[in-house]
Design a protein around this nucleic acid. Structure first.
Lengths: 224, 224
DNA sequence: CACGGTGTGATTGTCTGACAATCAGATTGA
DNA sequence: TCAATCTGATTGTCAGACAATCACACCGTG
C-alpha cells in the first residue's frame, strides 16, 4: 500500500512562487503579483497563498509591505540566527563545547582582525574605548553587557559577517550561564583585554591567540 | 514625527510561541498546545497563530501533523538548503567572506580534531573512507555531495556541535556556488584531503592548518 | 482471550467573505 | 509651486464553516 500523502496546497504554492521568481528572473527588490492575483493564477484561495508568502517572508525570500505589495527579499545570516538561536535542539551543547567553540571563533579571526586594524586605525580606537569603559563601569550588569560588546566588536573587526552572526548566536546561549559568572574575577579579564589589543596592534598574532584562548578558557573553571 | 509601526500580530505570535518553548523548556518532539488554544491564550485569531506556526514550521522549529497537533521540530539544515539555494541573487553574503569564515572554522577546529583522533581511531578511518569514496566516484554531483560530507565530518570530528551546526548553515549558503565549481580541478582537492588527514594523524597541527587553508582558499580563484 | 476492523473525537488543512490598516500617487486648494 | 488631503490598491486580521487526517478506544469475530 502506498502512503501517497496528498501534497499540501501551501507547499505547492511556495514551490510555484519560487518557480515564478526563477522563471521571471526576479532580483531582490522586484515586485511580485498581488496575493489575490497569485491565488487566481494558482487556482487556490488567498489564504493558502498567504501561508506560503508568510513562510517565504519569514526566511527572507520575500518582503511584504502593507498597502504596497510583495517584493523579492534578500537573505542574510543575521535573520536566520535570530530565529534559530533560541532553539535548544540546535545548540544544546554543554558549557565546555560553547567555550571551545568561542575559542575557535575568536582565535581564528585574529589574523583578519590584525590585518584590518593596520589599515583602519578606528578599529583599535573603538576596542580601547570599550576596554576603558569596562574598567570604569561599576555596575556588574553593565560590565557584563560591555564585555559582551567587546567580544562582539572583536569579531566584527574581522569583517567576516557570518562569524559575527554566529558569535551573537553563541552569546545567546552564554546568557544562560551569566548568573553563575557573577563572582568572576574581573580584574584579570580587564588586563587581558588590553593585552589582546596590544598584541593585535603589534601584529603579534600568536601572542594574541594565546591571550585570547587563556582569557576565554578562564571561564571553564566555573563550570556548574 | 514617530514612525512607530504597530507590531504585526503574527510576529507577536511567533515571539510568544518561541517564548513558550523556552519557558516550558520543550525539547524536540514535545507537544505544543493546539492552534485554537494558542489563539485563545494569546487573545488573537487562529489565523494569526497559523501564520506564525507555518513560518516556524517552514524553518523547522515546529512540526505539524494533520489530526495530531504541533510538536517541536528538529532543525535540519538540509531543509533550509532546499529553500535557500534556489536562487543565486537572493543571498546577501559575500563569497570571500564565506570562504574566509570557512577557513576560520575549519582551521580552528584542527587542534581539537587531532586530539580526538589520537584517542579514537575510528575518526581517521571514517575520514579516509570518505576520501577514497570521493576518489572512486565518477558522478560529479555525487562527488560534490561527498566533498561536503567530508568537510562536515572534519568539523564533527572536533566534537564541537555548535561549530558543526554552523558549518552546515554555511554550506547552505555555499550551495549557490556549486554550479560555478563544476570545472574545478578535483585532483588537487583529492590529494589535499589525504594530506590533511596525514598531518592530523601525525598531530602536525601547523602543517594541517596550512593545507586546509590552501585547500579552501583555492576556491577563491573562481569568484564570479 | 486474542486480534483485526471500525468508529469517533480531536486537530490541522482549506475555503469564503468581510472589514481594518497602511501606503503611494493623484487630486485639490491656497 | 507646494503642501495638505483624498482615493484606490494591497496587505493584515478576523470570524465561521467544513474537509482531511490521525490516534485511540471500541467492538465483533474467531
Amino acid at each position: 500500500m502506498q502512503t501517497l500523502r496528498r501534497p499540501k496546497v501551501r507547499d505547492q504554492a511556495t514551490d510555484q512562487i519560487k518557480q515564478f521568481i526563477i522563471k521571471q528572473k526576479l532580483a531582490p527588490g522586484d515586485r511580485l503579483p498581488t496575493e489575490t492575483q497569485l491565488a487566481e493564477t494558482f487556482g487556490i484561495s488567498r489564504l493558502s497563498v498567504r501561508e506560503a508568502t508568510k513562510s517565504l517572508e519569514f526566511l527572507g525570500i520575500l518582503e511584504s509591505k502593507t498597502g504596497v505589495g510583495l517584493t523579492v527579499g534578500r537573505i542574510d545570516m543575521q535573520r536566520m540566527t535570530k530565529h534559530l538561536g533560541f532553539h535548544s535542539g540546535l545548540l544544546d551543547a554543554d558549557f565546555r563545547q560553547l567555550i571551545d567553540s568561542r575559542v575557535v571563533l575568536e582565535t581564528g579571526v585574529l589574523p583578519y582582525v590584525a590585518r584590518r586594524m593596520a589599515a583602519d586605525p578606528s578599529i583599535e580606537v573603538n576596542l580601547r574605548n570599550l576596554s576603558s569603559r569596562i574598567r570604569s563601569s561599576r555596575d556588574l550588569k553593565n560590565r557584563i553587557a560591555l564585555d559582551v560588546q567587546f567580544h562582539h566588536s572583536l569579531l566584527a573587526a574581522s569583517g567576516l559577517q557570518p562569524l559575527v552572526a554566529f558569535g551573537d548566536l553563541l552569546d545567546a546561549f552564554f546568557q544562560r550561564f551569566h548568573d553563575s559568572l557573577k563572582k568572576a574575577d574581573w580584574k584579570s579579564g580587564l588586563a587581558s583585554h588590553d593585552r589582546i589589543i596590544d598584541h593585535l596592534a603589534a601584529a603579534h598574532i600568536d601572542e594574541a591567540t594565546v591571550e585570547v584562548r587563556k582569557h576565554i578558557e578562564s571561564h571553564k573553571e566555573r563550570i556548574p
